[in-house]
Design a binder for these strands. Sequence first.
DNA 1: GATTAGCACTCTGTTTTCATGAGTGCTAAC
DNA 2: GTTAGCACTCATGAAAACAGAGTGCTAATC
Lengths: 342, 342
Amino acid sequence: MRKMRILQAIIDDYILTATPVGSRVISLNPEIALSSATIRNVMSELEGMGYLEQPHTSAGRIPSEKAYRFYVNRIMHRAMLTEAEKQFIRTCYSTTLDKVDEVIKQTAWAISSMTRYTSMVLAPQLSAVKLKRIQLVPVAEEKALAVIVTDAGIARDAMIRIPRDMDSLHLEQVSHTLTERLKNHRLDEINALLIPEMYEELKEHRDFLNQMLESVKRSIDKGPAAVELSGTTNILNYPEYSDMEKARNFLAAVESKDVLYKLLTEATDLEFSVRIGGENETGNMKGCSVVTATYRVGEQPLGSLGVIGPIRMNYARVLAILGHMGKSLSEVLTTMYEEERK
Amino acid sequence: MRKMRILQAIIDDYILTATPVGSRVISLNPEIALSSATIRNVMSELEGMGYLEQPHTSAGRIPSEKAYRFYVNRIMHRAMLTEAEKQFIRTCYSTTLDKVDEVIKQTAWAISSMTRYTSMVLAPQLSAVKLKRIQLVPVAEEKALAVIVTDAGIARDAMIRIPRDMDSLHLEQVSHTLTERLKNHRLDEINALLIPEMYEELKEHRDFLNQMLESVKRSIDKGPAAVELSGTTNILNYPEYSDMEKARNFLAAVESKDVLYKLLTEATDLEFSVRIGGENETGNMKGCSVVTATYRVGEQPLGSLGVIGPIRMNYARVLAILGHMGKSLSEVLTTMYEEERK
DNA sequence: GATTAGCACTCTGTTTTCATGAGTGCTAAC
DNA sequence: GTTAGCACTCATGAAAACAGAGTGCTAATC
């Protein structure tokens, strides 16, 4: 259908140039091959249908948010990455990264440098992960190491203080009890389970049970601190943010990790999520678009990664990149955690 | 001396308003009580001496970098913090922060929100710290925990893989050998010491020695990754950066942690360092001023904290804040590390 | 001799005016 | 259904006019 192809041409051009596109440029497009007058008629119709807007009478047209939505849902075909880009991603993960945090950081960096937008990555959210085993190992006189093993590998190892009179046999026994009781429960249920049931039974150890709980809690709900951000200033390269006021607003919004955390956790049910301009309910993001994808560790979706950019974002390309990065990240993390699980 | 008082008044005003200051405003200052004409004469002299500059003939004067240098060295008197500000700092550290990284982050945040400039904090640099003890603790079938205890507390605990046939007695013995050999050496010497001497003696364990070395290495030279940054976008509130081009340059420079790392490590010999505009040799920082201070853990100076801002920075206030924060941070870290050392 | 009032002069930032040109909508011809 | 042609609109940029802040200098004053 012709209208659609013209709309696509307009969007493509606007994504590229950020200036209102007139009938002229479209008529020059060899794919279309119609005179500018015809284009003008079609444009007029498209405007009537709400897909185009005119900043003022004698300017070209710009796509409305509705147009982008239509574009994303119906017109756009998934872009492919070039071989060079795939190579780039591979080399990103080839340097030895031994901590999860580092992998996350690297991922954020890679996304922002490939897309030239602002990127964010949420570290694995362990609340839904199930506990497999708890082990307490004596280290020094009054110290022990609590190793908490989960479905997905080691969630956390923490140094805790123990009473002087507790020997390794005793520790072993406590480990056993805890494991039996908590096995196969989600980490975020542990708190609720422990308090009523076990405090009685193990009450003489209350002190370090508390320490352990504390430690588990911290490892599962790091909350907004689990968001890694990169390429914040990329946004300044886009003319829609050449206005200082807008730029500052954006940067301020992005500086608060709470907002980013919300953005990343809001849409984890789907593989991909695209929120265009006003579709964003969170934060001051009505002027931007947010695209996110989820990644997995093993089978479970444990986190997400995304991009914030101007509404005239190159959605096709961004989706391709996020898809690929998400897959790579899943692989890297899965093997990392498996490594630990041994 | 009158000239000096006038210079001070000019600087004070310029720091506040960022606009060239004319003879008028100074003459209205009750501390000075001279007519604008007189001020003009003095200003003319100060300009001749290189302390003032005129953007163009009919504008007021602005202080030169030489003037700021003079101001910092000779005129400025150390500001005092208000009771509210001290209180603020105290509450910053009152929420339980259990990891060093978190303390550093919190510190950076506090500095930037108090000064309204961009702040940076260098995490403790452990290369100069001396090793006290190495202990290997068996955890699982093929895993052990390496605890590396130093002068200043625990530097690092790392999970390493061990051969299946290594029992706890054997581990104990290796721990002992390592400790004896490496005790009281700086962490950054360990590499050099281990390789020639011990590889022979302990060659059957080469595999996990390597892992341990790797781990130690990573904990001491995190390098630029050890820099925590905060309040990057504060700079946008200052009119000298209302020019998009400059703002972008600044943000780009600050985004590379290498530059910040250099800035923070360049001047760790002194308690405080103030580098004004062109005095900065590093990065693209000739348009800014950088003020840093050092902090200690126990007795040793292990890191530094600082602020980047416009040249017309409120040096007195910044120095007061950095001084106070540095002291508080030293205390917090010292007790944290002591806690661990037990 | 230091200070000050007065005044002409300089230079910037702002507002006004005007011309240019890109782009449109409409009509009439193809 | 498509296109050429034309009158109309409006943003953008340059040039011109203006107001105001600040200076340097001179001459009067303390």
